[in-house]
């Protein structure tokens, strides 16, 4: 039954579709490369569609979660329980006037939101959504995810600089410094998981959690990854880059309309990617009884997104020097200890 295969044996279903397309291509005489190209394009479209839909849902979810934590409803008027709110936001942003600011370095100003969004989206191509449903099953998937996330953080700073605004620059540089600093414990915590699973491949990591999820085998690494990923995503208690607006100006100030929308979406894409990474590394990815794996995956990443939002709306903001001190004096040594202990336990 096709439907059953789609849900419960997604790998074979994907292979089956691919086979069908190849046979069709051979039959009509089209080169195999062209059908591979069309395959890649279709997969890309599906992935981008999924990201966009989920990210739009996340913007709605953020406001609802914020509302309910703050003893109010959140958006209620646009559609039932405000579900059409993201569409309304998108339309509003589309109609905003794109300002041509004096002194702005146009090339970098325009490229930065795009590249930041691209960097965040690149993370998704190595995440296993289901057994067999990985866009790029690389042997070094984990490292690829961190490379992509580091790339997007550079363009946050570039965006801040190109705005020709002293304070955007400062905000952008602080964001870059924070992201770079927290990448170290982030990667170290993830290496702990890689040690336990025996490889950097995300597919391998998920499959190795069939018995026990890594959050039990590597609890300290899970907590450290949670904290470091909050800093990576410029979120939660670590959002001083954009909340500089409460003091002077954040790196987003000079962006309006669709360019702001790009940054905004890029942030939520990064959030979802971070949640997906956490799920893959620590919560067992698509593992789970009874329900189809894709459903388990979606449930888990949205639970993690909810946890991230919960943290954001509960805690006040942390100051930049406390943040750095916290990283170098607390999180990093813990990550190193975790790595050492894991290594020791594995050797013995």
């Amino acid at each position: 039954m096709w439907l059953y295969q789609f849900f419960y044996q997604p790998g074979e279903w994907a292979r089956g579709i691919y086979q069908v397309m190849e046979n069709w291509a051979v039959r009509i005489g089209m080169g195999i490369q062209w059908i591979q190209l069309i395959d890649m394009i279709i997969v890309a479209i599906i992935l981008i569609a999924f990201i966009f839909l989920d990210v739009m849902f996340l913007t709605w979810l953020e406001r609802k979660v914020a509302g309910h934590i703050q003893v109010r409803h959140g958006p209620m008027r646009t559609g039932p329980h405000g579900i059409i709110q993201p569409v309304a936001d998108a339309i509003k942003l589309l109609f905003k006037e794109p300002m041509a600011l004096p002194g702005v370095d146009n090339l970098i100003y325009l490229i930065s939101p795009l590249m930041m969004f691209v960097g965040a989206m690149l993370i998704y191509i190595v995440i296993p959504f289901s057994p067999g449903w990985v866009v790029a099953p690389m042997d070094y998937g984990l490292l690829f995810a961190f490379a992509a996330s580091g790339l997007s953080s550079f363009f946050v700073m570039a965006g801040g600089w190109s705005s020709n605004n002293k304070w955007s620059l400062l905000g952008g540089m602080r964001a870059a410094a924070m992201t770079l600093s927290y990448e170290v414990p982030l990667i170290l915590a993830a290496i702990g998981v890689a040690l336990v699973s025996g490889g950097l491949s995300l597919v391998g990591i998920v499959e190795s959690q069939a018995g026990m999820w890594n959050i039990i085998r590597q609890p300290l690494a899970a907590v450290l990854f949670l904290v470091a990923s909050l800093a990576e995503m410029n979120r939660g208690p670590f959002d001083l880059a954009e909340a500089e607006q409460e003091l002077v100006a954040g790196y987003l100030t000079e962006y309006s309309g669709m360019r702001f929308a790009m940054y905004y979406l890029g942030e939520y894409t990064h959030l979802l990617a971070g949640a997906a990474l956490f799920t893959t590394l620590f919560l067992g990815g698509w593992q789970g009884p009874l329900l189809p794996p894709i459903l388990w995956f979606l449930i888990k990443i949205h639970v993690m997104v909810f946890v991230y939002m919960w943290i954001r709306w509960t805690y006040p903001r942390i100051r930049i020097d406390h943040l750095m001190a916290f990283n170098w004096k607390f999180v990093l040594p813990l990550a190193l200890i975790n790595l050492g202990v894991t290594g020791l336990v594995l050797v013995l």
Partner: peptide
């Protein structure tokens, strides 16, 4: 609110 704990304002 000034320090970033938005929730406390509404409470």
């Amino acid at each position: 609110l000034d320090l970033g704990a938005w929730t406390i304002l509404l409470y």
